[in-house]
Every structure is written in C-alpha cells, then in structure tokens.
Design a protein around this nucleic acid. Structure first.
Length: 133
DNA sequence: CTTTTGACAGCGT
DNA sequence: CACGCTGCCAAAA
C-alpha cells in the first residue's frame, strides 16, 4: 500500500501536499492555484496545476481554479455543475473570487501550517539524503 | 548533470 | 477586454 493512497498522512511530495490541501477546502469555496502555492509556502501556481493533473475522486478539484475565477476549458462544464450544486458565488460563468475565496479559520490555519511545515521538512530532508559526501 | 513541461499569475501594450 | 511576454519552480525525462 503506497503512501499516496493514505489520506491524513504526511505528504510524500509537493503533489501530495497540494491534494491534501485541496481536500480541506469547504464546499462553496475555492482557492486559486497561486493561493495553494502560497499557503504551502513553496512552489508556484504552475506546480499546483501540474499536481492537479493526477487527481482522484477523493479530491474536489473544481475548488482549485485560476485566480480570475475560471478553469481550463476542458473541465469548465463539469466544474460549473459542481459550483451550481454548491451554490458557489458566481458572476456569469466565472467564480467571484472576492466572495468565494476560502478564508480559513484559525483552527484550519493550524492544519494548513502543519501541512506546509511538513512539506518543507520533507523537502529539506530529501535534500539531505540527496547530498552525497 | 540539463532540458522540458505545465488544470498559472501578473504586468505591459 | 485581448494578447504577448516573463517569472515561477517541482518533477519527470
């Protein structure tokens, strides 16, 4: 059983951390790719985008979108469905980031920070292992 | 080791 | 509002 299939575990890599953070986003709320990167304290929007290529059905991928409230065209319809179902704040066919952007509570911040810290620690130790003599 | 690749962001024109 | 360009940085090749 590989680590990727066990939720609520320490992230094995950046991709995993992104997935875990995505799972924390409440229904009706969204985060931008850039938000995710910022919250994790590493990587950037493009890394997050890459990470979202390998999602599974446990991940609410439609809650991770562009900073302008849109999502890539191939997923727009399915995403719109979810947004409507969750009563996500919309303006036309795009999400109103000013309304729908997830603002974590203090408690939720703790989880996020823990995840971010964990990821950074993992990265450092990997670096450590990689350094040979 | 270097190169390529991205479900992106932000700024300038 | 629409492009075009540059910056971004982890992972895989």
């Amino acid at each position: 059983m590989d680590a990727r299939s066990t939720p609520e575990q320490h992230p094995v890599d950046f991709t995993d951390a992104v997935h875990q953070l995505a799972r924390m986003i409440p229904p009706g709320r969204v985060l931008s790719y850039g938000d995710i990167a910022e919250l994790l304290g590493s990587g950037g929007p493009r890394q997050v985008g890459k990470a979202m290529q390998h999602t599974d059905d446990t991940i609410p991928w439609w809650r991770v979108i562009r900073s302008n409230g849109s999502i890539t065209e191939s997923l727009a319809e399915q995403a719109a469905n979810h947004w409507r179902q969750e009563r996500t704040a919309m303006r036309g066919s795009t999400v109103q980031m000013s309304q729908a952007r997830w603002k974590p509570s203090d408690t939720q911040w703790q989880g996020i920070d823990a995840l971010a810290a964990d990821l950074r620690r993992r990265k450092l130790s990997a670096e450590n292992d990689g350094i040979e003599a």
